[in-house]
Design a protein around this nucleic acid. Sequence first.
RNA 1: GGUGGGUUGGCGGAGAGGUUACGCACCGGAUUGCAAAUCCGUGAAGACCGGUUCGAUUCCGGUACCCACCUCCA
Length: 490
Amino acid sequence: MVQIRLTNTRTRRKEDFQPIDPTNLRLYLCGPTVYDRAHLGNARPVLVFDVLVRLLHHVYGREAVTYVRNFTDVDDKINAEAQRRKAAGSALSLEALVAERSDETIAWYHADMDALGAMRPHIRGEVTPVAEPRATAYIAQMIQMNLDLIARGHAYEAEGHVLFDVRSFPDYGKLSGRSVDDMIAGARVEVAPFKRDPMDFVLWKPSDDELPGWDSPWGRGRPGWHIECSAMSAALLGPSFDIHGGGIDLQFPHHENEIAQSCCAHPAEGFARYWLHNEMLQVEGKKMSKSLGNFFTVRDLLDRGVPGEVIRFVMLSTHYRKPMDWTEAKAAEAEAVLRRWRGLVAGIEPATSPAPALVEALADDLNTAGAFAVLHDLAARGDAAGLLASARMLGLLLPEMSEWYEDAKSTEWIAGSLSVEPLVRLLVQKLAEARKAKDFATADAIRADLTGIGITLSYDPDGGITYKREQQADLSQVSAIAAKHGISAT
RNA sequence: GGUGGGUUGGCGGAGAGGUUACGCACCGGAUUGCAAAUCCGUGAAGACCGGUUCGAUUCCGGUACCCACCUCCA
């Protein structure tokens, strides 16, 4: 059996992965807060985990893997949207409006992640909504966990809040390498007066009548963010499980707090054994932010015609623990490579198993960049069946993601360009006739004009011509070009 | 201020104490009416300063620069 090695943030070392139970692997990935479309950065941990899960499937079998990813649907931004709809005259209750907003955001999220070829979370291999818990469905478990923490002396009630007592957990700060005293020194937040220690964090907070809330021993309120993941992972995976993942920005405070809550509520258990954190995504060398104007969602890219498979390729071409930069140049390069590979594997059945070198690369702390080198090698040797089987382990060259390639190959035009398509066809026809008559001057002139506006073409061996519209094609000039070459629009 | 990560050839991006990473681009060649595509091939690197070593881009220390987190952003 292949030995998987993973960099465990908890120990800051690359370690052999030893499952608690090889027939029942359990993974938890912090999912999105469902207030809006997922931005590009949200996709990174999902794709990293997707490759990890595919690798685990390969090594341990699909039915041995349980992969849980939550939806955080308790959030001020969701509440704000619900309140806006209420104010706009909706007859629904606030709770129903919150659910409505969450539902539509979750549907978007599914569509976007599906487009990237990311597998849905699953329990022992079986895709089910249970593997994607919503925080609002686990409020009772959160309340119970808070009660346990209070009973064990790790939490206290103050003015309708329940707070975690960080001084009661000596290991607090271990994951992120900070001491409580360091954190206080660097803290820039105003400290609520009812906290025993400035770093104590909220497990439960009160809700007023304007906000969604649930009845609890501490009055009507809602859970703190961190307790949600502790309660849901315990409910679905048990108090000890194998791998917990997320972006490096969640290391502190979110994951630190999860550890504190879960380890104090279940002192005999180890909680997550391996912690995986991916580095952040940048755009053209800068942090993605709304103020810089370089903020965009996965859907924005898809709508602009960047295939999901290309996004996936770019994301995986950088190791997950390094900052990665999204650039147009990378997307173009990825598309060219994918196009070549798809041409190579067309009509080919995949080999029965991926190349051992590829599995080895992935087993070595998910070295996806190294895995690409293996794919390039297979392609260079003309091993199409091996390339296909291996690429699919990375979630590439999957049949369900081939649409963009098929469209380009069949020179199909998107709806907006239908009106000029007949003209282009006539121009190409004229070009073909000119070539046949060895009138290369005319042929080259037509080709140059079409290339100039972003319609590229290539000559097939049989004398036919394949043409396609590039991303930035300027179709407004087509009729002028047609007129120039003696073709009139009718 | 605290914590963590990074700096590799024109660009992107890995591994490894000594032996070609790989891809894109470039250049040369094959093919082509010319292109495109494809195929073959060459060249090119490891921030700076010290240390350990027979030997370091790879280990250790320092310096510079970049980034992230410390604010319920993956």
